[in-house]
Simulated scan of single mutants.
Amino acid sequence: MKVQHKLLVANWKMNGSAALVATMSDTLAVNSLTGVDVVICPPLTLLHSFAAKRNFKLGAQNVSQHQAGAYTGEISAAQLLEAEVSYVIIGHSERRELYSETDELIAAKVNTAVQAGLTPILCIGETIQQRQQEKTEQVLAQQLDAVYASQPELLAKSVIAYEPIWAIGTGESASPEQAQATHAFIRAHLAQLDSIAATEIKLLYGGSVNGENCSALFAQPDINGALVGGASLKAAEFAQICSSAQE
């Protein structure tokens, strides 16, 4: 596997304010981010609140599969680019569950993002019931295969975020060993689809990542960063997580 910078993605979800934008920007500005790439994904209304000069990139939490048109409440890839967005989260478990997003729709969104020049952060993960039934690998493979089947080159142009649904916002987290085993499976499955992409693609862990468990997670060979939820709303803790990821 190639040596690569860690990638830290802050998913603010439907949280945040102009005050948090200022605090986070100031906190990250005084922290060295050597050897780590940082992406902040705030609510859309806050994208223009960030200064043009910053030591991190911006991401969005969703994108429409459509280019433009009568789709009230949606946001297009072109509009995200105008807001200086570089990454977009696609297929988050909350979108899959609360908004009934299917594998096919997620694949279409990944394709739209890639064609526009955005980097998709493709989220995959299993429920607690699926894990208890030992279906984790089956579920993850199905979610990856749906994107690959739609356009084989899309996975190579994406970031993959493994988020065990049972660990999101619950305070529970997969152990470093559990997370590594699952990430190793994901990379091995990717190798069956695209051997080159499997060595280069960043695999992120997302599931109650915080300042206490991040170092042990980042020490695992197949974990290349994290998709951080609640802890990314605390500037000091998020900066600590970023520092822990430095090579």
Rank of each mutant, 00 (worst) to 15 (best):
K6R: 14
Q115Y: 12
L7H: 06
I223E: 07
S32I: 09
H189F: 09
Q142R: 04
L47F: 07
G69W: 04
P164E: 11
M1L: 13
I106S: 02
E172N: 15
Q133L: 14
F50L: 07
E172C: 05
I128K: 03
L203T: 04
S76Q: 12
D103R: 02
G73I: 02
A184E: 10
A161E: 05
S32Q: 01
A107G: 11
Q151W: 00
P164W: 06
I201Q: 05
K13L: 06
N55Q: 15
D222R: 03
A107S: 14
A156K: 06
K109F: 01
A236H: 06
N62W: 06
P164T: 12
V38R: 00
E177I: 15
A113D: 10
I201L: 09
Y71I: 11
M1Q: 09
T182R: 07
A10N: 06
N31Q: 12
S86F: 01
K2S: 15
Q143G: 05
R95A: 11
A116F: 12
E163M: 10
A184Y: 04
G207Y: 13
A245W: 05
Q61P: 00
T182I: 14
A216C: 12
T34W: 00
Q133N: 13
T34Q: 04
G207V: 07
E84G: 06
E74C: 09
E134Q: 15
Q138D: 15
G91F: 11
L81M: 10
L140C: 14
A226E: 15
R95F: 12
I201H: 07
Y205K: 07
I241H: 10
S208L: 00
I40S: 01
E153H: 03
L28C: 04
I121C: 04
Q79G: 15
K157I: 00
R95D: 03
L204G: 01
L190C: 11
E163W: 09
V88I: 02
V3C: 06
K13V: 10
A181W: 05
V36S: 14
T170I: 09
I75S: 13
G91L: 06
K157T: 09
A191H: 11
F238C: 09
I128S: 03
E200Y: 05
P152I: 09
I160L: 12
S215C: 05
G69A: 11
A236N: 09
A83S: 02
A239M: 13
S17E: 05
T119Q: 15
N224H: 13
F185V: 08
Y71T: 12
A19V: 10
V38E: 13
N31H: 12
P221T: 15
N62S: 14
T127L: 07
T45P: 11
L155C: 05
Y99R: 14
L140D: 10
I168R: 02
N55A: 11
L58F: 03
Y87V: 06
T34P: 01
A146Y: 01
I223H: 02
T182Q: 09
A216Y: 02
D26S: 13
A146M: 00
S49H: 08
T127W: 07
S49C: 08
H5S: 14
C214T: 08
A108S: 12
A68K: 15
N224E: 04
A216G: 00
I89H: 01
L122Q: 05
A60H: 08
Q129G: 09
V63Y: 08
Q143L: 08
A60P: 08
V209G: 00
I241F: 05
I121H: 04
V209L: 00
T72C: 13
G35K: 04
V9P: 07
Q132E: 09
V88K: 05
